[in-house]
Amino acid sequence: SHFELRVGTITLHFDNISEELAEELEKLAKNGVHADEIRRWWEEWLK
């Protein structure tokens, strides 16, 4: 499923992401983690 995450002024787009993972990314964003860090985390997870 597709997921969009708003982090400050940036909107990150994720394809084929589980609800659980989407929730984890939302938690990171709410805790003030920068969009670049979240994207890096996601790319690492995909490997």
Rank of each mutant, 00 (worst) to 15 (best):
L12R: 00
E44M: 15
H2D: 06
E23L: 13
F3I: 02
V7P: 00
H34P: 14
K27I: 09
E23I: 14
K47M: 13
I38E: 01
E23M: 14
E23A: 14
D15K: 10
E19M: 13
W42F: 15
L5W: 02
H13Y: 13
E4H: 06
E19N: 13
K47S: 12
F14W: 05
T11R: 03
D15R: 09
E23G: 13
E26Q: 14
E44H: 14
E24W: 12
I10R: 02
E24I: 12
A35P: 13
K30H: 10
T11F: 05
A22I: 14
E26R: 14
W41N: 04
L25N: 00
E44N: 15
L12D: 00
S18R: 04
E37T: 09
R39F: 13
L21G: 05
H34S: 15
A29V: 10
L21C: 04
L21W: 05
E44D: 10
V33D: 04
I38F: 10
W45K: 09
K30A: 13
E20C: 06
H2M: 05
R39N: 07
H13G: 03
L46I: 10
R39L: 15
A35C: 03
I38Q: 01
K27E: 10
E43W: 15
I38D: 01
I17W: 03
K27Y: 11
L21H: 05
K30S: 13
L21M: 12
I10L: 11
E19I: 12
S1D: 08
G32H: 06
S1K: 13
L46F: 10
W42E: 01
L28K: 06
E19H: 12
R39I: 14
F3M: 02
V33Q: 09
A22M: 15
A35H: 06
T11I: 13
L21R: 03
L5T: 01
D36L: 13
N16Q: 04
W42L: 07
L21T: 09
T9H: 12
L12W: 04
L5C: 02
W42K: 02
H34V: 09
S1N: 14
E20G: 09
H34W: 08
R40Q: 08
E26D: 10
G8S: 01
D36I: 07
A29H: 03
E4S: 01
R6L: 09
A35W: 07
N31T: 13
F3D: 01
E20S: 10
V7R: 00
A35T: 04
K47V: 13
F14Q: 00
E37V: 10
H13A: 06
E26G: 11
I17A: 03
W45G: 04
H2Y: 08
A29R: 04
E20A: 11
H34N: 13
A29E: 03
A35S: 06
G32V: 08
T9W: 05
R6A: 09
K27H: 08
L28P: 00
L25I: 07
L46Q: 12
T11E: 02
R6S: 12
W41Q: 08
W41G: 02
I10T: 10
L25Y: 02
D36E: 10
K30Q: 11
D15E: 10
V7G: 01
I38M: 04
V33P: 04
D36R: 07
N16G: 07
I17P: 03
H13W: 10
E24K: 13
E37F: 12
H34D: 12
E4A: 02
L21S: 05
T9Q: 13
W42Q: 03
F14E: 00
L12Q: 00
T9N: 15
D36Y: 06
L25G: 00
G32I: 06
L5M: 05
L5F: 03
E43L: 15
E44K: 12
E19W: 14
T11P: 00
F14D: 00
W45A: 06
F3P: 00
L46R: 12
W45Q: 08
H2R: 08
I10V: 12
K27W: 11
K30Y: 11
E37G: 10
